[in-house]
Amino acid sequence: MKKKITILVPTDFSTASRSGMRFAIQWAQQQDAKLVFVHILQVLRMTDWSDQQFEAFLRAERTLYSRRLRKVADQVCRPKNVSKENYSIEVLEGGSADITLTELGGKHAGIDLICMSTRGAGKFKKLFGTHTGNVILRSDIPVVAVPASYRAKPIERILYATDLADYASEISRVLEVTRALKAEVIVVHFPQPGEARLNPALANKIWQKEYGYPVKLHYETPDPDLSIADNLQIAIRKLKPSLVVMFTDRKRTLFQRIFYPSQTENLSFQLKVPLLVMGKKE
Rank of each mutant, 00 (worst) to 15 (best):
H108N: 14
L175M: 07
A56L: 13
K153I: 07
F37C: 02
K281F: 12
S19V: 05
N204V: 05
V9K: 01
A16Y: 06
Q75N: 14
I228D: 06
F13L: 08
T63C: 09
K80Q: 15
P261F: 04
L164D: 06
N134H: 11
R252H: 13
K251P: 04
L44W: 10
T221N: 13
K3D: 08
D230P: 02
A145D: 00
E156A: 11
N134P: 02
I111N: 01
D163A: 08
E85H: 13
E210K: 15
L104G: 00
Y87H: 02
K123A: 07
Q263N: 10
L104E: 00
K4I: 09
A33F: 02
N266L: 14
T130A: 05
A165F: 09
A148N: 07
N231T: 07
R78W: 09
R67S: 13
F57P: 02
Q26W: 03
K34Y: 10
Y167R: 09
D163G: 05
T6C: 11
A97Q: 01
I99P: 00
F54H: 11
L164A: 06
P224Y: 06
L41N: 04
I186Y: 08
Q26N: 09
R197A: 12
V277T: 15
T221M: 12
D74H: 13
F259M: 13
L226P: 01
E55K: 14
A201F: 11
T63V: 09
D48A: 12
F124R: 10
S117H: 02
G110C: 08
K2T: 14
P191I: 11
G20F: 01
